[in-house]
Amino acid sequence: MAVNILGYMERTSPIHKLSGITKLIVFIIWSSIAMLTYDTRVLLVLLIASLVIFQLSKIQLKDISFVLMIILAFLALNNVAIYVFSPQEGVQIYGSSHVIWDGAGRYNLTWEQLFYQINITLKYFVVIPAALLFILTTHPSELAASLNKVGISYKIGIAVSLALRYIPDIQRDFRTIAQVQQTRGIDLSKNEKLTKRLKNVISIMVPLIFSSLDRIEVISNAMELRSFGKHKKRTWYSARPLLKVDTITLIISLVFFIVAMVITFHDGDRFYNPF
């Protein structure tokens, strides 16, 4: 009934089988490469690899269409903003200017700017599947255990995993509340004017917030009554030991990282310059 916005999806795939800690480290390496490099060749390889891994994970495009739309909207906004605030960024970086279309003042369109923004977009496309995969294929409890293993406090780990766990519950509450409010004429559909719709959202948020506060009180009592926070460390029921495949995956991504860095920086510049 409810759209699953972002949460663990149980499937049987090689990606699901990897331990949470492996996926976390690969994800960190992966996004470090994507953040550091502007080298189009590296980005393209990463992109293809991302898509292949995504295929392997058996997560369907429709499972994530909602989040994807939001991210794409932000991406578009980001691209527009870059052009508005810095239309000559590409020219500065690549040190040449091939004008495609002559606009007013600084606002002409150059191949360099276009190429630069394509690279930015590519970076998004490299990180998005990796981030989504990490969240969608890692069991929240294992996620908590993994975060803890890389040195983050277990309290933060549990907080993150609880937050992820509550998303479906809160969605369910939201749905029920929205339906009940609809009976009283509070409409969130497109039949209503946008300003009215925004106002109507508030009528749903108030009960949602109050019922969520109730939920928080119950869960924090339940946790406290079962010794949560007593010691500095804790053990994990669902932590998985590293298997051979984990080690192999980790080695491969490390090699990948080094190669990518070498290619990116060997000419002393993070950018690949075709001009």
Binding site: Y8, S141, L162, I219, A222, F228, R234, T235, W236
Partner: peptide, 20 residues
């Protein structure tokens, strides 16, 4: 509202986890 673990085993284990 009182469940912390995602599955049965994990929820039953919660206080043991906290006791290391």
């Amino acid at each position: 509202g009182q469940f912390i673990g995602m599955n049965v085993g994990e929820d039953i284990a919660f206080s043991l986890e906290n006791e290391k």
